[in-house]
Design a protein around this nucleic acid. Structure first.
Lengths: 227, 227
DNA sequence: GTCTGTATTTGAACATGTTCAAAATATCGC
DNA sequence: GCGATATTTTGAACATGTTCAAATACAGAC
């Protein structure tokens, strides 16, 4: 019997097959887009039967999720490293956003597929689901570090929730970017620059004693939604 | 030849068939949910062939859209009327939200189907598409009136964009509500109450001369996104 | 090497949204 | 009423995501 931890040994051969399917799929997604690529295409290109694709991926979208996950993992160090060179909070957050988008960029067109399931936290593929929690926490960690080493003093109560809030902010930017059809996604750049300025200014203001009641209300609001 | 305006005469009989399909669908959606209801079910219940359903509705989701549209139309007067009794901006906006949710309530479960297409403004079913513009403008009109007759003085530059911003706010609340599994959607109620308070306070503050630069930045941000 | 159970692979079958050409029906000018 | 044209209706065909029972390959015990 397998332990509750499950998935003890994926055979090397199995791992290889999975990889082949995964890479065939990504290539096709890039070429023809997510919707245009059928699971049969993918299986054929990978040289396996249709069923095999489903043995390794619970659904078509799960392949995209795997990509997103891998991308996230591989970016971890490079993001932390890139951030190290900056002191200003604005720059630090910008670095996180830029790196993320840069890595997503070659596959921009099809990542949108994931957002279809987004609002339903029950769906395993939702960014809010418990299944995707590890990915989410990784991303939040980046943002926590960004604030930690930045030049803006944030009140303790807000600081605690800030990674989550910034993660939401990041998701919003990514969502906008995915559907941004302006050349070279210039609108996203503009949006990022402007919103970052606003964001950092608000964080600065949030420290003023005058702002305490407003901050409290806002945090209560977050608790109501986030719980 | 038909004029460019198209769709000159839907025969009474045709209108009847459409209605039968529409109503069969809604009933099934309510009973079994959107995903569980097949177009074949709907056609069967309406006593027509499968193809007929597609003659009248371009897609399964289009039926939901039709419902949303009808709901919106029928609510127009009742919303304006209900608002007339209130002077405080907070109450006026609350009335709009409450009425909307109240009307949506019997069909809460399946309205979520519409939000799958939401982010892609190209998709005719997206709330941001040009096809859904009339619905959107109706909703914005309610919110414009709400502000117009309220007790909060809003600077002109902000006022102009406010209906759109409030519409976004309304959409967010609806989205949250659709997926709110708490008993009687209490969390939505809490969210509405808290966020409304915050919102109105922010609008009050927005008038202070001190806030002008912040307001400007925020509005620029909106322009960047909304264009 | 053979046996046994597990992991992997297969491909047919299924469900369902959607399309479409053909059939049926209604409408209109005469 | 008749023929022509436009509208409505039909149901079969299609495409594709997904499931699943059966077949196959494999690893380890003996």
């Amino acid at each position: 019997m397998t332990t509750p931890a499950m998935k003890i040994r994926p055979t090397p051969r199995a791992e290889d097959t999975r990889r082949r399917i995964y890479e065939a799929a990504l290539e096709l997604f890039r070429e023809k887009g997510f919707e245009q690529t059928t699971m049969r295409d993918t299986a054929a290109k990978a040289g396996v039967a249709l069923g095999a694709a489903y043995y390794y991926f619970s659904a078509k979208e799960a392949i995209v999720l795997a990509f997103y996950q891998e991308m996230q993992e591989s970016s971890h160090d490079s993001i932390l490293h890139a951030m190290a060179g900056h002191k200003k909070l604005k720059d630090r957050i910008r670095v996180v956003l830029e790196k993320r988008l840069e890595l997503l960029a070659p596959n921009r067109k099809f990542c949108a597929a994931l957002f279809g399931h987004a609002p339903d936290a029950t769906d395993p593929l939702s960014p809010f689901s418990s299944e995707t929690r590890p990915i989410r926490e990784r991303a939040m960690e980046h943002l926590r570090v960004a604030v930690e080493g930045g030049d803006v003093k944030v009140p303790a109560d807000l600081k605690q929730r800030l990674p989550y809030l910034l993660w939401l902010y990041q998701m919003a930017i990514i969502l906008f970017w995915l559907y941004d059809r302006s050349p070279r996604q210039q609108r996203t750049q503009a949006l990022t620059e402007k919103s970052l300025g606003l964001l950092v200014n608000l964080l600065r203001l949030s420290g003023l004693p005058l702002m305490k009641p407003l901050r409290k209300t806002m945090l209560e609001l977050v608790e109501t939604v986030a719980l």
